[in-house]
Design a protein around this nucleic acid. Structure first.
Lengths: 192, 192
DNA sequence: TGAGTTTTAGTCCATTTGTTCTAGAATGCA
DNA sequence: TGCATTCTAGAACAAATGGACTAAAACTCA
């Protein structure tokens, strides 16, 4: 039933989902909804937690066990698959929440930020291992590579919602993975 | 006055902005709002158009005149500057709209998609020129590079709203620009 | 069986939503 | 000056919102 609530929030966002929608879809009664969760807000947070656990955290767990290079490839091709078979174009609930959250609502933001850091740390860990055993190029610092992959991942999920063209999304993943054996030519990074 | 409406929608998104907010902030009366625009929806579209024109299109125009390499560097460092001096964390209205729009609303989506394509075409044009005069590495096809930069750009704007840490954002831009003289080592792009 | 707790369906409430209307003030142009 | 148009402020509208309440039904476990 929490799963149904998650689907509602995922599909339409926090503000656009009414308590009556939730009551309809979860097949739970209004009284017990407020009794069990106290609040629409609290229900949302629980739903987001569930999404993260079943989607992001689960993916990280599955990939973390793989060799460095394969881990990152598996991660991205998993996200790519999910994005391509998403006829409703719901995208990623985490990314949606990142931009949907009302600005004053710090709790939502911190929640999302923490998960993004977790993803970054996954990238970082695998890249460091890969650089250690030379399956991943070392000319770019692992921290920079991890951040770069994180931003490509976010971009992928934005584009998947607006321009769900398979060639576009596949191309982005391919060039992101290509970065793993990318050697800088001569120049240093330009100072910004 | 359309500027004030834009600010409202930018700050809080389409759904969360009420007509009364708009009336307050634009200092225009309700009657003439409906008389001039017909609709909250129509006002939003006009506001988004204005944002695109003053923000995205203007930036492209300014950068398009520069030499290829500088054009892309200027584009990103402009976005970076905007993201760093954004105390309200409003982010980019275009990207916000991309994820905020109610799924059934195709008009919004197509609108956003078209602008994203415009940005991609700007990247593509400059990269092709840069590869022609060898100021940009040629080992990756210009199309792939352009798409990659687009996704990094989207990711940057998502991260700027959730984790506005200067080091993070600067690092992302730096490694994106670093890609412009990136040479692949041995492997081909892995097939997905 | 029986008392005690949940769950159910549905109503009710105050507020807010997008939108329209009314009446009066300001403004245009001849 | 006079008439027509546009503007203004604000009330009024039906619908929808988040949330609380009620009374009947369903369970639980002695």
């Amino acid at each position: 039933m929490l799963d149904a609530a998650m689907q509602c929030f995922w599909r339409r966002g926090y503000e656009a989902t009414s308590v009556r929608d939730l009551i309809d879809k979860t097949r739970i009664t209004g009284a017990s909804l407020y009794n069990a969760f106290g609040d629409k807000r609290a229900l949302f947070i629980k739903s987001l937690d569930r999404y993260v656990e079943h989607s992001v955290a689960d993916r990280i767990r599955r990939c973390e066990a793989l060799p460095p290079r394969e881990a990152i490839e598996a991660f991205f091709s998993d996200v790519l698959k999910r994005s391509l078979e998403d006829p409703e174009r719901k995208g990623c609930m985490l990314v949606n929440t990142a931009l949907d959250a009302a600005p004053p609502d710090e709790a939502f933001r911190e929640n999302v930020a923490a998960v993004l850091m977790r993803i970054e740390m996954f990238f970082l860990g695998r890249i460091e291992s890969g650089q250690a055993d030379a399956t991943i190029a070392s000319l770019l610092p692992a921290e920079d590579m991890a951040r770069h992959l994180l931003s490509v991942l976010m971009g992928l999920r934005v584009l998947a919602r607006v321009r769900p063209e398979p060639a576009l999304l596949k191309g982005i993943v391919a060039s992101a993975l290509g970065m793993l054996d990318c050697a800088r030519k001569e120049k240093a990074l330009p100072a910004i």
